[in-house]
């Protein structure tokens, strides 16, 4: 379980919450190198809290969270952002009043002294999302929901992290935009990125990820390979998640 050499992320005995009340209890899971893993669960299961614990936004946490061999429990978010992990937050939360390109460049803050690498990453975002390049001078929050999601993913890519975290990226998107999102996530997979996807939509998780963990009331209650889950399994998980 805790083989950190083959794993980008190893979480062991993670508990934490808000105002000294635990929301997640004794969580353990891993994300292998180049692997995409989904964390499924109903509203209030603690999925976003797990992501906040990994990124350092959750101050009250115990256990170990090892990213690329470094235990990040006790580190602040700005320290974890130095190449270890980057996140697409729920609701995208792009920087208001700033252009698409500025949002992307702010995502690449940690590499600001390496101009060549920043330009290379920016080009790779534009290659993946041509629409983002087309609208690079526009104010980011003026774009459609789907386009904003592309910018949010691009902003995450710009920090060139070992681990990419996505919190409910399909939330509030139109069906066409969701199809684009799935394509984008699959392209990220082809680039051998390590991904932890938090989702309520089982179909998206199964289409994109290698393995899934099911979270309920702050505990992991099930796990398995996405390919092993048949139509019946999907229906069961759907019913379970409500």
């Amino acid at each position: 379980m805790s083989n950190t050499i083959d794993n980008t992320l190893v979480v062991e005995g993670l508990s934490g919450g808000y105002d000294r009340f635990d929301v997640i209890h004794d969580i353990a899971f891993r994300v292998g190198r180049g692997e995409a893993v989904a964390l499924l669960g109903p509203n209030g299961a603690g999925k976003s809290t797990v992501l906040r614990a990994i990124t350092g936004l959750l101050k009250h946490r115990r256990g170990t969270v090892t990213i690329d061999g470094t235990n990040v429990v006790g580190m602040g978010p700005h320290q974890i952002s130095r190449g270890l992990a980057a996140m697409v937050p729920e609701g995208r939360r792009l920087f208001v009043g700033q252009s698409v390109e500025d949002n992307l460049r702010l995502g690449g803050m940690r590499l600001r002294k390496d101009r060549a690498r920043t330009d290379q990453l920016l080009q790779s975002v534009y290659d993946l999302f041509p629409v983002v390049e087309r609208y690079k001078a526009r104010e980011a929050t003026a774009l459609s929901g789907g386009e904003q999601q592309m910018v949010a993913i691009g902003r995450m890519m710009m920090s060139d992290p070992s681990l990419m975290l996505l919190d409910e990226p399909s939330l509030g998107l139109a069906p066409l935009a969701i199809a684009d999102l799935i394509t984008a996530l699959q392209q990220l997979r082809e680039r051998k990125s390590s991904i932890l996807l938090v989702e309520q939509r089982v179909d998206i998780a199964l289409e994109v990820c290698d393995r899934i963990y099911v979270l309920s009331e702050g505990r992991i209650v099930d796990e398995g390979r996405a390919s092993d889950i048949g139509t019946e399994g999907r229906a069961l998980i759907d019913a379970y998640l409500g």
Partner: peptide
Amino acid sequence: LVGKLGMAISTDPEIASTFGAN
């Protein structure tokens, strides 16, 4: 970039911190 990061902190300090803003 310093000023733009300041703008980012002004609008969303939490997310700005996850991209390296102190």
